[in-house]
Design a protein around this nucleic acid. Structure first.
Lengths: 96, 96
DNA sequence: ATTACATTTGGTTATATTGCCAAATGACAA
DNA sequence: TTGTCATTTGGCAATATAACCAAATGTAAT
């Protein structure tokens, strides 16, 4: 493993780690349709505001989603556009 | 989140978790080219046999790779054929 | 059967992650 | 400025993960 390859592997592994929690994966799928603000996630998920915010922050740091502050709210939207394709592909991975 | 959706999310999140370690990701990329036995991974990675075996087992349980026992050796090969596409796609996720 | 080799499993310790609470920040309204 | 609402940050306890060593299993050769 070379140094540059190591950085690349850590970067991609970091994305997979961000996506490796069911709640975060669900959040990403919600953003396929449209952007959504933090409070909307809180309402549906019934998790603490801080918990939701941290999940979103992990996805943002991995460059899977991005935020857009407008007024009092923070709206999140999908950044990694290939996510729908990736998920569809993995759902079929057990097929021969 | 419905029950069936929950199972689907956990399944896919499990795949992402399996892929979320740099060593495991590297292993998967090695298998793009050809199958490889456990001992070959041990040689290159300089990790304990047990560590390598456990990493491979995690990838196998997530149905990303599969094993093939032949003689004294166990050979692993890629099962989720879309992995090369997925990684390529995520490498470009920061582009606008 | 005995030995040797390849791999897996179990146990342990160190480190990372998750979720909540409480406190801090930031933006707008009064 | 003071207050209020939306969000983030810091800290804590519970749980999960990663690496090693040692022991167990499986397969093939003698």
């Amino acid at each position: 493993m070379e140094a540059m390859d190591k950085r690349r592997l850590e970067d991609i592994a970091g994305v997979f780690k961000a996506l490796s929690h069911p709640t975060r994966l669900w959040m990403v799928e919600q953003l396929f349709k449209s952007e959504q603000c933090v409070c909307e996630f809180v309402d549906v998920l019934k998790l603490d505001f801080s918990t939701v915010s941290k999940h979103l922050s992990i996805l943002k740091q991995a460059h899977v989603i991005e935020d857009d502050k407008r007024g009092k709210n923070v709206y999140y939207k999908l950044r990694a556009k290939c996510m729908p394709t990736i998920i569809k592909c993995l759902e079929n991975r057990k097929d021969k």
